[in-house]
């Protein structure tokens, strides 16, 4: 196991470009993302790492590709979009998942159609197929990273084909279902989907309540502010969710050419009480 070295931008790029020590490469890819190193050489090195064939995990996956795909989302450079779209065809589930998450972060609509392609086998005549519900034999995951794909489609504004998303509202996995609710809210603005996530705040499992909190924060559903504040979860997480609401609400205020609307003040008042 390689020890975590103290890196500089130059040494991280050098570590990523060498092929002797796989541990150093893996760590360097993570490091470049963590510190959002926005540098053309770093970008090129990370894009090259997306097709690496040396670093292979016991499960047959590509750890370096996963890390590089994650890092590229954080750099915010659109030159990573096409290489990440190609990763959606990678045989490693976790590379596809990281790519979908990063494509969401990069916010480029070119990713919409390729992401939708990953859902096509999962939906038939408005219903989920076995391909949507079954887990892969001997693996702990579904056939596709549906949660990441649905979240990305919601954020990217993929309004052209809701029939691929809506069936996932009935998915047996709670987090996939929440991702569908989140996307449907973002794509239609229909409060009924936001209310489904509010309902999820009352769930029995803390993990799922946390998940619903983060989803509500991500979509900025301001009507959930009171429910978030009184949900049974840590204040730290509630504050992060409320911050999402606040950021969204400030944008709404700007569009309405308003300063500190009642909703914005209400969200901050609740945040103050959670400190």
């Amino acid at each position: 196991m390689t020890e975590a070295p103290n890196l500089t931008v130059e040494s991280a790029i050098a570590h990523l470009n060498q092929t002797e020590d796989l541990g150093l490469r893996y760590y360097a890819a993570w490091w470049l993302g963590k510190f959002r190193v926005n540098d053309a050489v770093a970008l090129e090195a990370l894009i090259n790492a997306l097709t690496d064939t040396k670093d292979i995990a016991p499960d047959g996956g590509f750890p370096l590709r996963r890390n590089a795909a994650k890092a590229l989302g954080k750099l915010g450079d659109e030159r990573a979009v096409m290489p990440l779209i190609q990763c959606l065809d990678c045989e490693d589930y976790y590379v596809r998942e990281s790519a979908a998450q990063s494509l969401e972060m990069l916010g480029d609509v070119r990713a919409i159609a390729p992401l939708q392609n990953l859902l096509k086998k999962a939906v038939s005549a408005g219903e989920l197929t076995d391909y949507a519900i079954d887990t892969v034999a001997d693996k702990p995951h579904l056939y596709q990273p549906y949660e990441a794909i649905l979240e990305a489609l919601g954020t990217l504004g993929a309004k052209n084909d809701l029939t691929l998303i809506k069936p996932f509202l009935n998915h047996p996995f709670a987090k996939v279902k929440y991702a569908a609710q989140r996307a449907m809210y973002q794509l239609t603005g229909d409060d009924s989907y936001g209310e489904m996530l509010v309902e999820a705040l009352k769930g029995k499992e803390l993990q799922l309540r946390r998940s619903a909190l983060m989803d509500l924060g991500a979509i900025g559903y301001v009507k959930s502010a009171g429910a978030i504040a009184s949900a049974y979860a840590e204040n730290s997480l509630k504050l992060i969710a409320m911050k999402g609401l606040l950021e969204y609400q400030v944008k709404v205020d700007q569009e309405n050419q308003q300063e500190l609307s009642d909703d914005t003040m209400m969200v901050m008042k609740l945040m103050d009480s959670l400190l």
Binding site: L246, E247, V250, E259, L260, M265, M268, M271
Partner: peptide, 14 residues
């Protein structure tokens, strides 16, 4: 850099 901070400061100053 955070909208949450700039907005809360705006309210405080008001």
């Amino acid at each position: 850099p955070e909208i949450a901070i700039t907005t809360r400061s705006k309210l405080a100053l008001q």
